[in-house]
Design a protein around this nucleic acid. Structure first.
Lengths: 253, 253
DNA sequence: CGTGCCAGGTGCCCT
DNA sequence: AGGGCACTTGGCACG
């Protein structure tokens, strides 16, 4: 790891180039202006920020407040550095889309270049995928006697989360939402149900499954003759914990 | 600005506390594990990462690759630090939602605490708002003789971008998209048009306005008897440049 | 590639 | 607080 406090601006160019060539992550804290041009256009006037350029050339610029970066460029961009007019200039170009960022530093307080080893495994639980897997294991979560026959099935323009048959053999389309469902979700479900009705299935039911639903969405759902089934995320996870791979155990205390 | 290379872990607690109390931004590079529990659950096993805690307690954890942070917490959270079992532990709790992050460092390579002054102004152009403003200035961009009578008008459950009257006095609902429009946009437009048809307006037209549209969306649009009008973002911006405040000028080369 | 859709989406504005 | 919706949304999976 290389660290320099208050480096001369003309040295920064070399420093950054070397760091990126060595596949290190480069962090610059300093005073800069930013210009972005691409899908939209933005300009940020002078102030102190944190610039991170990762080993895959992802660029992230943070102001001292707020969760979101003020400017950025996704990984795989091309980074060009320059020292001109007494300033350090860093430009980033995306390869496919025409999208450019230009960061101009008139003062650099700190520059860091570090090789970072990170082979850690990232596991995420409790997303929609997990809801679905819990239901595949135990379809009774939705309804007694339900059998899942397809998942992520192309249904017209989009994909139905689950296609099932109920105890009476009727087609049941299930739309899953891991959080509070809104009108949007209802319209999605309607779209798939209509698709199967149009394509010959006589009795098609549609069930929206989520931990909660907005008032308006529920009203619309009823008007459209669709159904709602509340689901509990923790319950789904505990089912996965029992029946699924061991990886999950460690997460739930 | 305070910087320490390879600090002893038990010193880090004090260092971070002081930094945050002084309203500084704290950056830690080191080897850590992460546990997140809240809307979902995640676990990240050991590896080297960059942890940023901003002066407003926004927390952002980055791996050495990729644009997006692997874990985070929005601003306004509560940060608690601890030294336990030879490790430095940082926890973040959200105030309202039950959402927690726990980052456990077994090695810290670098720690930085910096007061960052940033009063810079951020200007963004070429968003949907700008499209709308260009059209308000020059409705002919959509159609000869069009007059805008409402913007962002509540229309049933949602908000219609623009309500207009055409040369023949018919109501025209306009849905704007700054990028390629999809089926979603068409359905949005349909929703508003139907609302006005249901509420007494006899002849209601619906126009989707965007720089481009997906094939499927265009097909659906036609089937529904709605219209499409292509718009050029640069053209809209040059109109704003002429008629709007000077702030815009500096952006367009 | 485009199309569709989830995301711990976030943020903004409005009721 | 809940609803609606844009965002340089990003990211992934699939035809």
């Amino acid at each position: 790891m290389r660290v320099e406090l208050k480096p001369a601006l003309k040295e920064v160019t070399q420093f950054v180039r070397e760091g990126l060539n060595r596949k290190e992550v480069v962090i610059i804290i300093g005073n800069c202006e930013v210009r972005y041009e691409g899908r939209a256009y933005s300009r940020l006037s002078s102030g102190t920020r944190i610039l991170i350029i990762k080993e895959d050339r992802a660029l992230i610029l943070h102001r001292p407040k707020g969760f979101e970066p003020v400017n950025w460029q996704p990984s795989g961009s091309i980074i060009v550095t320059d020292y001109k007019g007494g300033k350090f200039i860093l430009r980033s170009f995306r390869r496919k889309v025409s999208e450019t960022i230009e960061v101009t530093f008139d003062r650099v307080d700190l520059i860091v270049s570090a090789r970072m080893l990170d082979e850690g495994e990232f596991l995420m639980y409790g997303n929609e995928e997990d809801l679905k897997r819990a239901i595949l294991i135990k379809p009774d979560l939705i309804e007694e006697g339900l059998r899942v026959i397809f998942e992520e099935r192309r249904s017209g323009s989009g994909y139905a989360d689950l296609c099932c048959l109920d105890a009476k053999g009727r087609l049941v389309i299930v739309e899953l939402k891991k959080e509070r469902a809104n009108r949007e979700a209802v319209i999605q479900l309607l779209k798939y149900v209509n698709y199967y009705k149009k394509n010959g299935s006589k009795a098609v039911r549609g069930i929206l499954v989520s931990p909660s639903i907005s008032k308006g969405a529920l009203k619309l759902l009823k008007e459209l003759g669709l159904e709602y089934r509340k689901i509990n995320l923790r319950k789904c996870l505990s089912i996965l914990k029992k029946f699924d791979s061991n990886a999950y155990w460690s997460l739930l205390r």
